[in-house]
Amino acid sequence: MEALLAHSFDYLSSYDPGKIRKGLRQVEGLLAQICLSKSKLDRRRSMIVMSTSQSSPQPAAKALGDLKDDPAFREFFKLQEGFRWNVAMRLVTCLEHLLGKGSNGTNDLLIISTLDLIQGVLLLHPPSRTLFAREIYMNLLLDLLDPINCPAIQSSTLLTLVTALIDNPTNTRTFEELDGLLTVTSLFKLRATSREVKLKLVEFLYFYLMPETPTIPAAGSSAPNTAVLGLQRSPSKLAGAFTRSVNGASDSRGESVNRTTEEKQRLLGRYLSNVEDLVEDLKETSPFGGTVY
């Protein structure tokens, strides 16, 4: 796996769009192999089906709870704990490079592919989300919400932003400090913003208003995400490297990391007039499932 990651990282750092695309496909192939890997019994069944049918069976996705028993996933997760093999870091660096090349059809497609892969990596390795506690990386996502970017990039960026903020109040504080709420609401108010993007913006605001429950730990604490997967590992070195400094800064100001829906409502109310309606709808419909009040 190290050899595959090394080759893909080399391609991702290239200035040639063709090589970048190849690097992205290699990362995509690795993630697909992990998420779609099947048991020996399934492989035997597939071979039987293939021998009796002209069409190949579609690979079945694994449930998250089954990944803990997958050797490929365990190896991937272990490699992500350090900077050398961390895929999220490389993809974010690639995204930064692509963003500096301006807007054109080929580059836009590469940006969208990179954002999609970042989403997948952050879901497979939650500690990597702590990268977005840093302003430089959070600013990349906010820059991609600029009105000059195409709707497809804006939509993919909003999904990536949600993935980066899930269970990470520290990241949300960075988002707020960088005027992320102003960026999101300004895009929503623009008449030129497409209907599809506006719908995703509303979904993002519903998500933002949810009360916060942190699950990504600082160094030295327990690691719920790894415990759920049965990995029984020490907290991620990558996560600890960022949460130590950010949490320390919050503590020095005497601020609480977590915020309630009411606190977020007041913040969002600075930029949007109908926040109360959003909160009431959130209470009544629970759009993300479960009861939050």
Rank of each mutant, 00 (worst) to 15 (best):
D70F: 01
E135Y: 09
C150W: 08
N225Q: 07
S128Y: 01
P17N: 06
I20F: 03
R270F: 14
F83R: 03
P217G: 05
V162G: 05
R266W: 09
A32Q: 12
K19P: 04
G18C: 15
H7L: 05
Q26I: 13
G102A: 13
L24T: 02
R44P: 05
S256A: 09
S113A: 12
D70Y: 00
N86F: 06
E255Y: 08
K78G: 13
L209I: 02
T243L: 08
F207Y: 04
M1F: 02
R270S: 11
V49P: 09
L142Q: 03
Y206T: 01
V246G: 03
T106G: 05
G102C: 07
V275Y: 09
V92Q: 00
W85N: 12
L99C: 11
F132D: 03
D146H: 12
R25T: 07
G23M: 15
F204E: 10
E196G: 10
T157I: 10
K189D: 14
G230C: 09
R191P: 09
L165Y: 01
A223S: 10
L79M: 10
E81C: 01
L64N: 05
L5P: 04
L79E: 06
E96A: 07
V279Q: 10
L12F: 03
L159G: 07
E177R: 11
S51F: 01
L272T: 15
L187F: 11
V279L: 01
F188D: 10
N86A: 15
Q33C: 07
L142S: 05
V162K: 13
A192K: 04
S236P: 11
L41G: 08
Y11M: 08
S37L: 10
E284T: 11
L95D: 15
L161S: 10
N247T: 06
L117Y: 01
I111P: 10
L161P: 15
L161I: 10
S234V: 01
E212Y: 05
L187M: 14
T185R: 10
D146E: 10
P127A: 06
L205I: 11
A152P: 02
A3E: 00
D251V: 05
S194V: 05
N107R: 08
S286W: 10
M89T: 12
T160F: 06
L229Q: 00
I153A: 01
S222Y: 02
G29A: 11
Y208K: 07
L201M: 12
I48A: 11
L187I: 06
F188K: 08
S250L: 12
P214E: 05
V246H: 09
G290P: 14
D167C: 06
K68I: 01
L109T: 14
G105D: 05
Q54Y: 02
P217M: 09
M210N: 04
M50C: 14
H125F: 02
A32R: 10
W85L: 12
L161V: 15
M50W: 00
D251R: 08
L24D: 02
S245E: 07
F83T: 12
V49D: 08
